[in-house]
Amino acid sequence: MTPFRELDPLLHSQLRLAIMSVLISVDSAGFSYLREKTEATAGNLSVQIGKLKDAGYISVSKSFGESYPQTMCSITDLGRKKFAEYVTALGDYLKI
């Protein structure tokens, strides 16, 4: 029997997993886009983005577009690897 792999606690949280699931599908996404898709509050989203950034799972860049600052997020190679591991572990857990 294959030993059960522990799910990454950083990803095993609803909002952070949602952020990573959006970013895995795109090249980069803005803060407002992430907010719209996850339906999270700005403060909450900002905190979770910070945690993912500190762990090196995502990178965050700021630019100045049309007179307002724009925050763009994209997944890093480490984040992609961790997400793949999470999905594999989830598959083992759910036996799919």
Partner: peptide, 18 residues
């Protein structure tokens, strides 16, 4: 944001977001 999910809920979040 810190709510722990079941495996099914995790899969549901991933599917929904993608």
């Amino acid at each position: 944001e810190e709510k722990m999910m079941t495996g099914e809920e995790s899969l549901s979040v991933i599917t929904e977001m993608i």
